[in-house]
Write a protein that binds this DNA or RNA. Structure first.
Lengths: 164, 164
DNA sequence: TATTGTTATACTCTATAACTATA
DNA sequence: TATAGTTATAGAGTATAACAATA
């Protein structure tokens, strides 16, 4: 067994544990409560994505970034729009598409949420040396990027009998 | 705004992206297919947990490690037992409890699965300098640990009006 | 009486299929 | 004919409630 395997053998359980931690409502529900927002998790995820993008996004683009399917996004957009947290404007470049933008109150809500969560992260990492924090960001970014590339390649080449 | 905030502001979107990556079936389904296993994700998670523990675990312990609730584990154990991938043995220390152990075929299945996934990780990180891989493991371990501590504290102190 | 686990039921999240409108 | 989005329906995953057995 080569040393590369040894170096990555521990990755799977670590990532599963991290996923578990992030997935279960705990984090989200606590943050939602502390921030005073009453929104389900996928809806808040949409707001966070719009906030991070810094400009309006198409429905399909939101779906891609969430790694979910279009109709799922539509459903949550409907309820977000009813609550006036987002608006749909026609895309000037393509009349079929819509651009989704945060309303001021949507922006306000996502700001409250993210600042709550960021406060927790800051507290959790308060004892870390600066260098470790910097490295974590860098390695996490590269890990996500490399895993995405790897999985995309696997998905593309996964069923060679099916390609046409 | 202090520098600590700046250093952790980017953590939320990064973790959300990683969660997205790990969550959506893609990874699991591809691995299950490549490894030739036909099992749903939570069932496989149970096998991975048992494998990582290296000794039989109680139902409650599995639930805790999965961050889910008891009945959810029971349901999957029933189907895993029907397929002879796990066995339930009475805990000698407490007749109420059961210890869940992998059968040889269960062990074989989880081995196939983990070696497939570890192979991907190894490939994805093949270009990384050794030092980065080591650091990733270390920082990921500490991150998970510190976040867990943080969230537990939040959950415990989250509703001070409720304490008694 | 408290705890371990099970059974039964309900809810949340996400996917697939069928459709509408524009390209 | 292909693409962006929506509506309607179905399925996977997880939680809550009620119960049985042992401590």
């Amino acid at each position: 067994m080569d040393p590369l395997s040894d170096a990555t053998t521990g990755l799977l359980p670590r990532l599963l544990q991290l996923r578990t931690l992030l997935n279960r409502g705990q984090l989200y529900e606590q943050a939602a409560q502390d921030a005073g927002v009453a929104l389900d998790r996928p809806a808040m995820t949409i707001l966070v994505i719009l906030d991070a993008a810094d400009h309006p996004l198409r429905v399909g683009e939101i779906a891609t970034r969430m790694q979910v399917v279009g109709p799922h996004v539509t459903r949550h957009l409907n309820s977000l729009q009813k609550r006036a947290l987002i608006i749909r404007v026609p895309d000037p470049e393509d009349q079929r598409a819509r651009l989704i933008a945060l309303t001021p109150s949507g922006q306000q809500m996502v700001d409250r949420y993210t600042s709550t969560v960021n406060g927790w992260f800051t507290a959790a990492l308060a004892q870390w040396p600066d260098h470790d924090r910097t490295e974590l960001m860098r390695l996490l970014t590269r890990l996500t990027s490399d895993l995405t590339t790897q999985f995309d390649a696997l998905a593309a080449g996964g069923t060679p009998t099916d390609e046409d």
